[in-house]
Design a protein around this nucleic acid. Sequence first.
DNA 1: TAATGTTTTTAGAGTGATTCTAATTTTTGA
DNA 2: TCAAAAATTAGAATCACTCTAAAAACATTA
Lengths: 121, 121
Amino acid sequence: MTKQRELILQILNHADRHLTADEVFFLAKLQMPSIAMATVYNNLNAMTEAGVIRRVHVDGSADCFEKGGEAHDHLRCDICGKLANVSLPWLSERLRQTVGKEISGYELTIHYICPECKKRA
Amino acid sequence: MTKQRELILQILNHADRHLTADEVFFLAKLQMPSIAMATVYNNLNAMTEAGVIRRVHVDGSADCFEKGGEAHDHLRCDICGKLANVSLPWLSERLRQTVGKEISGYELTIHYICPECKKRA
DNA sequence: TAATGTTTTTAGAGTGATTCTAATTTTTGA
DNA sequence: TCAAAAATTAGAATCACTCTAAAAACATTA
């Protein structure tokens, strides 16, 4: 656990939303100006591998990262693109039952219009 | 519907698997050597927009495209990366019920080990 | 503590997938 | 048949991310 990794983890732990690698890099640079983009990616990848944080693919733009914790899926706003978490505890088991194969995981992103965008419309 | 678009659509309709834009380009070039990569992307995007074909995101590599038709989700082999289709007709309605919001769609990729890779292991 | 090896970081170059640009061609429609 | 709009082309550009090689930090043993 290097200083860099600690910083990156802290940034994700305190973030109130999903952050791209770029955003993590920007925030990290504020506190450690010498940090390199490659370090950010190295550590995001390493911590994702280790299950400490989670990577979320975002269609048509950069992946986002968020702190680890209980499993959940994502809602993505069709208009502003913002991600929200949603918990579907029944899904994993249900998939296992109906797919009829051993499954090692899944990724689900649900598309919707977020409350703010709906209000604006 | 230009000649180029027709060709690309035909290629996808006759493919027995999911094709990347590169693969579509290669196959298209065999029949129309002057075709440009940009045209392939333009048409893949336009037809995806129009719902004529489907785009499938593949973690860590190029997106794949497949012909339209009834909705389905995907299984992706953790080892060889090959995609397979799976039909989960109950899922859409179930999501709509439990998420408690109007949802406009979703993307689901299930991770597993495909039969061939399982045999080899 | 010194010497050594391993891991991580850094800066910047490189890569792969995709999009953009600007010139040309094709298509559409008045 | 002419003008306007849309699509195509080649190649440059962009974006997100990874690789490389050298330097720095850290750990391990003597």
